[in-house]
Deep mutational scan, measured.
Amino acid sequence: VRQEELAAARAALHDLMTGKRVATVQKDGRRVEFTATSVSDLKKYIAELEVQTGM
């Protein structure tokens, strides 16, 4: 499950970095929206997932 969450989070980051205004991911069973202003929060979430998956 964590691998899927990590892939979704990375895709969301890619979307935001390429101009999409809002990206949505499932985080702990709930839907979370990230915007360009919350990229740093999304990067932290990705880092947490990488630690949890041993990457």
Rank of each mutant, 00 (worst) to 15 (best):
V1N: 15
V1G: 14
V1D: 15
R2V: 14
R2N: 12
R2P: 12
R2F: 13
Q3E: 12
Q3D: 11
Q3Y: 14
Q3V: 14
Q3F: 14
Q3P: 09
E4M: 12
E4G: 12
E4K: 11
E5F: 06
E5M: 10
E5T: 08
E5K: 07
L6E: 02
A7P: 03
A8Y: 06
A9V: 04
R10T: 05
R10W: 04
R10L: 10
A11R: 14
A11S: 10
A11M: 09
A11F: 02
A12H: 01
A12G: 03
H14E: 11
D15M: 07
D15Q: 09
L16P: 00
T18V: 08
T18W: 07
T18P: 01
T18D: 09
G19Q: 03
K20P: 02
K20I: 10
R21M: 14
R21S: 14
R21F: 08
R21A: 15
R21E: 14
V22S: 13
V22E: 07
V22F: 07
V22I: 10
A23K: 02
A23F: 00
A23I: 09
A23L: 01
V25F: 02
V25C: 07
V25E: 03
Q26K: 09
Q26V: 15
K27S: 06
K27M: 14
K27A: 07
D28A: 05
D28F: 00
D28T: 03
D28P: 03
D28W: 00
G29R: 03
G29D: 05
R30P: 03
R31L: 15
V32W: 07
V32A: 05
V32G: 03
E33K: 06
E33G: 02
E33M: 06
F34K: 03
F34W: 05
F34G: 03
F34Y: 13
A36V: 12
T37K: 09
T37N: 15
S38F: 03
S38V: 05
S38Y: 02
S38E: 15
S38I: 05
V39S: 04
S40Y: 03
D41H: 06
D41F: 05
L42C: 02
L42P: 00
L42G: 00
K43A: 08
K43T: 07
K43G: 04
K43W: 05
K43N: 06
K44P: 00
Y45A: 03
Y45V: 05
A47V: 08
A47K: 13
E48T: 07
L49T: 01
L49P: 00
E50M: 08
E50V: 09
V51L: 14
V51Y: 14
V51G: 11
V51A: 15
V51R: 13
Q52S: 11
T53Y: 13
T53F: 15
T53S: 14
T53E: 13
G54N: 11
G54S: 11
G54D: 13
G54M: 05
M55C: 12
M55R: 11
